[in-house]
Design a protein around this nucleic acid. Structure first.
Length: 497
DNA sequence: ACTCCACCGGAAGAAGGGGTCT
DNA sequence: AGACCCCTTCTTCCGGTGGAGT
């Protein structure tokens, strides 16, 4: 049943593609005489000698087979996790390190090795990866875990059932087949089939929302307990989870072992934040932090090394000028040694060069790439902001544009109120607006600092940290903010006071 | 040493929208 | 249908505070 549904899924994906391109063709057909031109457009791009040999290896999603300068950390993890292959519970691990220091890549690498080795020695052991930035509440973490294990159990049962049915068919022909098995009669097989079918029906997958959390927990618990195995749960960006919904999840997971009989659970937490354990319950803290592994930032030389390795696969030979890799490394080293950033830079620089129709990446492309990445990020973030945040941001832009330095919350709130009334949007409280400002600060769109001005109170002082004109254009492209331009004279009047 | 500004930011909980269960 | 549950957004309330001015 799950198999057929999965097949169905992939079928629809493939079914849709032709429909899509049909739609495009229809579009081109609609332009008379343009068929030639449209073909030429892509022909040119296809035939122009591409710079890339294999662009995939520069993408963040790619897990490399070799992680230079991380041998020590990888060995540490392996030493701890090898316990799982002996059927015991490995210590919980906490991994620290800034973004792009290879935490996730290393952890994934180790877990793949672990799983493949466990297959080889037929020790049931598996790793579940959860990104807590996406799955950021206790309910969702438990639900996701429960569902994957239910899925697995069902697959396992299905496999058993088909084997049993096979056996039964053969036994029907000659009963002697049974002598080599644990069953002494066909009815015994039937019994087994029946219990398995019952088991299978008991598994009920957890809905997106609606259940009480403890029910989700017990569903998960039973699903894990169903078969004997060691389960390693990898919680990426675990600090996000703790920040948002406290340490209940971790507490529940870490005490599971004392109640489980068949299986064992071990946790690998991956965190950007070195101090996040401060917020944890001491019991959770000690159980989670049994082993700690730190990933220090890469320095420029190490980054150069990494880029060198990847570029050999990624680019055609001779596509890079000598100073490209050192420059990418230098830029990324400034950004706390972020290898992901370095690879992004290299890839974008390549794309820019391709667009220039040259087959050679130069220093200038890297500089352009640096700007492009930053701008793309800002555009994306600003565009997807909720309306209220956009209004707050626009208020800050207006103040900045009128040459106000050291903008404070009170001023922003006043302009914001004006904007809201002009375009007929609900006015939020100042309390809420300070939260929105803090969010903009965290997104790196504004820079806000709490300062005390003595007699004149205490406030957040902020300034825009993105290009003013570009940001304003993005904001005004939102239809809900379009009217705001007409409202500007009213706001102007405030400044004249 | 004390005051007092103009906010900050935590806590609690209302409102509303997602959903399930019986 | 009505009772629950979860999650997010927002409000209300309020104690807290760094340092210029006195």
């Amino acid at each position: 049943m799950p198999d057929t549904s999965r097949d169905g899924d992939s079928d629809t994906i493939f079914d849709e593609e032709p429909v899509d391109t049909d739609g495009q063709n229809a579009l081109f057909d609609g332009l008379p005489g343009d068929e030639e031109a449209s073909r030429g457009l892509f022909d040119d791009l296809l035939n122009s000698e591409p710079i890339f040999e294999n662009k995939e290896v520069l993408r963040p999603s790619y897990t490399p087979r070799r992680l230079p300068h991380r041998e020590e950390q990888i060995n540490n993890m392996a030493t701890i996790l090898v316990t799982a292959l002996r059927g015991d519970t490995p210590s919980n691990i906490l991994i620290y390190g800034k973004t792009g220091t290879g935490k996730t890549a290393s952890a994934k690498f180790v877990s793949e090795e672990l799983e493949s080795t466990s297959e080889k020695y037929e020790v049931p052991c598996e790793v579940q990866y959860i990104n807590c930035e996406v799955t950021d509440t206790q309910y969702r973490v438990l639900a996701q875990l429960a569902n994957t294990f239910i899925d697995q159990n069902e697959q396992y049962i299905d496999q058993q059932l088909s084997e049993l049915n096979d056996l039964k068919a053969r036994a029907n022909e000659s009963v002697s087949v049974l002598s080599e098995t644990e069953f002494d009669s066909i009815t015994a097989i039937d019994d087994r089939i029946e219990t398995l079918t019952d088991d299978r029906e008991q598994f009920e997958s957890v809905p997106m929302t609606g259940w009480p959390t403890d029910r989700v927990y017990s569903t998960f618990f039973e699903a894990v307990e169903y078969a004997e195995r060691v389960v390693v749960i990898m919680l990426d960006e675990i600090d996000k989870l703790v920040e948002k919904s406290g340490d209940d999840t971790l507490y529940n997971l870490s005490r599971m072992n004392s109640e489980l009989e068949n299986s064992r659970v071990s946790i690998i937490g991956i965190s950007n934040d070195l101090k996040f354990t401060d917020f944890l319950d001491p019991r959770v803290k000690s159980s989670l932090g049994e082993e700690e592994i730190v990933f220090p930032p890469y320095d420029a030389t190490q980054l150069k090394d990494i880029l060198q390795h990847r570029s050999e696969v990624a680019f055609k030979s001779g596509a890079l000028s000598d100073d490209v890799i050192p420059l990418c490394a230098a830029f990324a080293a400034q950004e706390h040694g972020d290898a992901r950033r370095a690879l992004d830079l290299l890839r974008t620089a390549g794309e820019l060069a391709e667009r220039d129709r040259t087959d050679f990446i130069e220093e200038e492309h890297v500089r352009q790439a640096q700007e492009k990445i930053e701008l793309d990020r800002v555009v994306e973030v600003v565009r997807t902001l909720p309306t209220q945040s956009k209004l707050v941001l626009y208020a800050i832009i207006l103040l900045e544009r009128h040459g106000v330095r050291n903008i404070n919350t009170g001023e922003v709130f006043n302009i914001y109120k004006q904007l809201c009334t002009e375009i007929g949007v609900d006015v939020l409280t100042q309390r809420r607006v300070t939260d929105l400002i803090s969010e903009l600060d965290m997104l790196g769109i504004v820079n806000a600092v709490v300062v005390s001005k003595g007699r004149y109170g205490r406030t957040k002082e902020m300034s825009l940290s993105v290009p003013l004109e570009d940001t304003e254009t993005i904001l005004l492209s939102d239809s809900r903010l379009a009217d705001v331009e007409e409202a500007q004279p009213f706001v102007q009047a405030r400044f004249d006071e």
